[in-house]
Every structure is written in C-alpha cells, then in structure tokens.
C-alpha cells in the first residue's frame, strides 16, 4: 500500500463522487421544494445518458447540439412526470409518494431497455481529450478532470441560483411554507414543475458525463441508489450538503474498498460501504451535516 495508491483511490473517488453530487443535487432540489422523495433520480440520469447517446451517435448530431437537445428532452420529460404523476399525489402519505416514484423508476428502466436494449454502448466520438496528466505524482485521465470540473461548475451555478435569482428565492420560500409562498403571489404549481425540470436537467447532465467516461448500459440507474447515503450525510434539504455528501461518499466507498481489498482480502465492500456509513450517520446525526433540524418535545 503506497501513498500513490491511496491518492489514486481518493482521486477516482472524487470523480465518481462528483457524479453522485450531481444526482444528489437533483434529489435535494425536488425534496426541498416539493417534499417528494424521488426514488427515480438514477433513472433520470440514465434516460439523460441514453438520449444524448441517441442524438450523438445514432443521429450524428454534433456534441453541443446533442447536449442542448438532451437538456430539452429532460425538461419535457420532467414536466410530463410532474404534471401526470406527481401532481395527483399531492396530500397523499409519504409511503404512497415513495411507491409512485418507485413505479416511475420501473417504467423508465423498462422504456430504456425496450428502446436501446441491454448492451453496453459507448459514445463516439469521445467528448473529452483522452490524454493523461500527472497530479501530485498520480497519472489522471484528463476526462476525469473535466468531469470533476463540470460537476463543480453545475453545483456552483445552482448554489448561486438558489441564493440570488428570483426563481431560486421563490423556490426556497415554497420549501419553507407553501401557503405563505402562495399568498405572496408565488405559483406553487409552477415551482413544483420548475424543481422537477431543474432536477432532471442536472441528473441528465450527470448521465452524459458518466456516459462519456464509462459508456452506458441499463444498470446506470444504480447511481440513484447512492443518492441516499450522500444526501443523508449532507442533510436532506441542503444543496451544499448534497455536493459535499456526494464527494465524501465517493471517496469513502473507494477508500474502504481499496483498504479492505489489500488488508482483509474482502472484495465488494464498495457496494455496501455507503449504506453502513448511512446507518451510522442516522444513528448519531440524523439531520446530517447541514440539514434543518426538526425539534419536537413532549
């Protein structure tokens, strides 16, 4: 076990973590504004990745246009989902809403398999340059760096959006109290639709990025399941928390996997480490690093 190996684990963890962050960001945006727990977040990522593949490879659209079309498609899909499926569920108990998003995830998964099959597909031409550069003595592929930087950029854009733009402030107000927001002239319906649109776009871009690096297949939705450890760690309703949580989970799962592999000869720790972390956090700090605490007294 060398220092270099450790660094390598951390860096690849950060790259995967940045994708987790993007998906977690999408999850938090929906949760914050609408209190809907979206179990189909990973599927939104998968759909984004496949749609971009369709434009880029199957229809040979140049990348910029393909990305734009993917974003437009994600927006339309999100609006459709919000209007058709989530709006009738307003006021239903949490368990029904969880179930309806699980149903949605099954439908999206099945649609992707039916349209594009189950084989691994690769983006050609590759979007990012393929060279490697040396970072602190560790060779790192340049596409990893790009992926990381772009995710950070997305996170920064949305932090600013929520803090300063009018729509962002309206969304925060809706999250805080829907009735008050409505009486201030904010259209809560429009905010709900907007949060789904933003969330789908962010996840879709995450899908395009990961598709560029690893290629895409129909198990891509697994990214959506990592959203729970990431957001619980960061605090369910915190944008910054989602960003940090994703990165930390990415690094921790990579490190624990590498360490257990070397020292205990135990493989596959990667699949379970995030959930062990999740349980520990829930036990000691249930509202995460930056989440809003709810205090109840009897």
């Amino acid at each position: 076990m060398t220092m270099q190996y450790l660094l390598q684990l951390v860096i690849s963890g950060l790259v995967i973590g940045s994708i987790y962050s993007a998906v977690a960001l999408g999850f938090v945006i929906i949760y914050k504004a609408t209190r809907v727990v979206n179990f189909a977040q990973g599927e939104l990522l998968m759909v984004g990745a496949y749609v971009c593949y369709a434009f880029l490879v199957q229809m040979r659209v140049p990348f910029g246009a393909a990305l734009l079309l993917t974003i437009l498609f994600s927006m339309a899909l999100a609006m459709l989902i919000e209007r058709m499926i989530l709006r009738p569920m307003i006021g239903e108990p949490i368990i029904s809403i969880i179930m309806v998003t699980i149903g949605l995830s099954l439908v999206l998964r099945s649609a992707v398999s039916v349209v594009w099959g189950t084989d691994i597909l690769v983006y050609t031409p590759k979007l990012f340059p393929q060279e490697t550069i040396t970072l602190a003595g560790v060779p790192v592929s340049l596409e990893f760096v790009w992926c990381f930087v772009l995710s950070l950029f997305l996170l920064a854009v949305f932090s600013v959006f929520f803090k300063y733009s009018k729509a962002g402030v309206a969304m925060r107000a809706t999250a805080f109290n829907q009735q008050v927001a409505q009486s201030m002239g904010i259209s809560v319906k429009r905010i709900f639709a907007l949060s789904w649109v933003i969330s789908a776009v962010v996840s879709g871009i995450g899908g395009v990025l990961i598709g560029n690096i690893n290629g895409i297949n129909n198990t891509l939705y697994h990214f959506g399941l990592k959203v729970f450890p990431a957001t619980i760690l960061g605090g369910l309703d915190s944008i910054l928390g989602a960003a940090l949580g994703g990165m930390i989970i990415g690094v921790l799962e990579n490190l624990s996997d590498g360490l257990c592999n070397t020292y205990f000869d135990l493989s596959g720790v990667k699949e379970v480490a995030p959930y062990v972390i999740l349980v520990v956090i829930l036990m000691i700090k249930p509202y995460g690093l930056f989440g809003t605490k709810e205090i109840e007294r009897v």
């Binding site: 569920m89 029904s96 309806v100 439908v107 099945s110 649609a111 398999s113 039916v114």
Partner: peptide, 23 residues
C-alpha cells in the same frame, strides 16, 4: 426478447395508476 423489460414497465405503470386512482 423485450418481454422481461416490458413486464417490468407494465408492472410499474399499474402501481402508478393504482396509487393515483385508488389510493
């Protein structure tokens, strides 16, 4: 060959419809 995927999708759709119309 799409049968399994289709089944899963229809299953999901039925859950959604049930929750919307028969909560």
């Amino acid at each position: 060959e799409l049968a399994i995927a289709l089944e899963q999708g229809i299953f999901g759709a039925i859950i959604i419809l049930f929750l919307i119309f028969e909560p």
